[in-house]
Amino acid sequence: MSVITYRQALHDTLRAELARDDNVFLMGEEIGLFEGSYKITAGLLDEFGPRRVRDTPIAEEGFTGAAIGAAMLGLRPVVEIMTINFSLLALDQIVNHAAKIHGMFGGQLAVPMVIRTPGGGGQQLGASHSQNIELYYSFVPGLKVVAPSTPADAKALLLAAIRDDDPVLFLENLALYNTKGEVPADCAPATIGKAHISREGEDLTLIGYSRMAHVARQVAEELADSEGLDIEVVDLRSLRPLDRDTVIASVRKTGAAVVLEDDWLTYGIGAEIAASISDGAFDHLDAPVRRVAMAEVPLPYAKSLETAALPSHDDVVTAVHETLAAVGRRR
C-alpha cells in the first residue's frame, strides 16, 4: 500500500498494462515527446518506443476512428483525448461507430478500446475548455463510461477498462490529478458498473462521481465532526452501466438523498439518478431528492465568476441542511 496521486496511479497503470500486454498501445496528441498535456504518459515513449506510444496529428475524429479500426483487428488502443471538450470533434466516431459496431455487426467484431479524457472546470480555461459533458456518452448504449474519484479507483477502473472488450470512456478530472490516496500494490481490476459506498451512514445519502464524490466525502466527514451527522456517500464510479441497485438500496436505508454533479442541472446525470430513486425508493423518501449542479451558463473565465458558477463544498452543506430540515418536518 502506498500513498500516491491520482496522476501517478494513472501513469503507473498505463505503464504496467503496456508491459503486460503487447496489444495495448497509446495514441493521442502530445502524449509522446511532450509526455501529455497533464503528464500522465511521462516517460512512456522512452520506455516503450513509438510503436507503443504514438503521437497523433491534431485530428480527434481521425485518431479516434483509426483506434476503432485497430481495435477491430484485436489491438487494445488507449486513446488520450486532451480534454473531454475536444471529444466533440470525435463524436461521430465514438457514438456512431465505437458504440455500435459490435451490435450492428451482429456481435462479430468487438471494439476493445479506451478513451481517456479529463473533464472539469475550475482551472480558468474558459467556457469551451471546462465542460463536464460525460452525459453525452453516458446516454449511449454500447459505450461504457467510468469516472473514478480516488487514486485507487483510478487504477482499478483503468485496469478494468483496458481489459474490457467494449469501448470505455474513462473520465478523469483536472482537479483530481494532484489528489492523493492509498493504492494497494496488488490492486485488482474493478467491476465496471458497480458503485462504491465510500462512507456508510444512516441520516442521508450523498451521491456523486469524479470530483463531486471527492467533495461528498469531505462534506460527510466535516459534518460528522462538527454536527454529529451520519451521512452515507455513494460514489457512482460508473455512469454506464449505472448501478441503480446500490443507489436505491442506500436511499431506502437513509430516506433522503442529495445528488451532486459538476455538469448542468437540466437533463443532467443527477436527473437520471433522481428518477431512479423515484422509481426504486419513492415510498422510503422523507424529503424531495435535491440536486446540486453547476449554474446553467457557459463557465465564465473570470475566477470569481467561475468559482460562483461551479458547485461548491458550501452548496453541498446547504443542500444537506435543507434536506434534513425537510426530513425533520416529516418524521
Binding site: A66, A67, A71, H97
Partner: peptide, 20 residues
C-alpha cells in the same frame, strides 16, 4: 452507411496490419 467514416477504420486496421 455513415459517409466516409470507414476510411478511418481502414487506416487504423492497416496500421494494425503494419504493427503485426
Amino acid at each position: 452507411i455513415v459517409i466516409g467514416a470507414h476510411t478511418l477504420h481502414a487506416t487504423g486496421y492497416a496500421m494494425g496490419v503494419q504493427r503485426d
